[in-house]
Write a protein that binds this DNA or RNA. Structure first.
Lengths: 201, 201
DNA sequence: GGTTATACGGAAACCCTTTCCGGAACTATA
DNA sequence: TATAGTTCCGGAAAGGGTTTCCGTATAACC
């Protein structure tokens, strides 16, 4: 009752910022996981990751309570990187070229990171939020590129950003023993379909 | 040296045929696995499968030394069923209709069996042979349907059976929170691309 | 029926994920 | 800087699933 310290009882005290060692360990883990995943796949044992990160298993599981949380975090980081590439491309190239280059960037991401396709198709509900995250982060980027490109008459847009995003994500997902440029060919075919069918049937 | 029994030393004796209980157990296991996989996903514990099949774990692992072997076997069976559907459709319908109906059949297979997409994109080398098996079994079926359809001028073929097969397999693979007919729309768009682009650029 | 190769069942070994907790390290405050 | 109070760390142990192993049972062939 006699406690007049401002806010002490009404508002919880300002959360002290995360300890620097914790922040550093999270960073190390994400970096290590990215490396190990691309080397040995997303099913690599956790020990391999913690060893590379120079950290105990306990530390891994405090920050990423489920294995899938770590995988999700790594994938989301890479999605972010992809989104961040858009503004620079838009500034440096003609609209149509920027769009093409960004699609290449996205295609490379999907084709390279096996873990992404694996998570997406695993059926594990832990990854249900991934398409949403993809759309949320990459949708605006792609939309602005698409708009600029259509405005300058370089392409005719007949497909939503979401449809295109998902189609590329699926078509370019790596399959064993596949010709290297299969994904690109199919995407090109799809875009061809867009160009032609200017009149709906 | 004195052994003159025909063939006994030169040729190994004819292999005795597989024991009937073994054959029966394999059948039970495949049936049980199919059921459990579609109910609880391909990651369901092996015990569930052996219980349903009325068999010990040892039996499962003798016939399918790796878990992936069982999954592969179940998927290959379903691919076979898909291939077997083609002749009947071809006999019962106009070429164009038969092609459409068979593509529907295949689409349903891909969309329904999560395990298929999961295996294909898992990155596990155990499944590297799956696309080959798919092509080997379904390629001829699709080709003959495609040929009949093109011959009767109902479609213009500008895509190889393999490309089409793989595109459908990828586009129709289920993704979380996806509109129900996304896959079909994209496949339609792809086919639209084929119709239009009669002249290569 | 007797002999032999083959298959069965389930306990144990193994490997990986996840939990737990005593002790160490960091932050805030004086 | 010293102290108190959190927060975080490390690795041992628990939990759960796959895979191996081997004594026993049974089908195939003579």
């Amino acid at each position: 009752m006699s406690d007049n310290t401002p806010d002490s009882s009404v508002r919880e005290r300002a959360p002290r910022r995360m300890r620097t060692d914790a922040r550093r360990n999270i960073e190390s883990l994400l970096e290590a996981a990215k490396t190990v995943f691309s080397t040995a796949g997303v099913d690599a044992p956790a020990k391999e990751i913690t060893d590379l990160a120079g950290v105990g298993v306990g530390t891994l599981y405090r920050h990423f309570p489920q294995r899938s949380d770590l995988i999700k975090a790594v994938i989301e980081r890479e999605i972010d990187a992809c989104a961040d590439a858009a503004p620079a491309l838009a500034a440096a190239h003609e609209p149509g070229v920027a769009l093409a280059k960004w699609l290449d960037r996205f295609t490379a991401f999907v084709a390279t990171k096996r873990g992404f396709a694996a998570a997406l198709h695993s059926g594990d509900p832990a990854y249900d939020g991934l398409p949403g995250y993809l759309m949320q982060k990459l949708g605006p980027a792609l939309e602005s590129l698409l708009e600029a490109a259509t405005a300058s008459r370089e392409v005719q847009a007949q497909i939503s950003a979401q449809d295109l995003l998902y189609a590329v994500a699926k078509l370019c997902a790596p399959m064993p023993n596949e010709e290297p440029d299969y994904g690109r060919r199919m995407v090109a075919l799809l875009v061809e379909g867009l160009r032609s069918g200017s009149s709906p049937h």
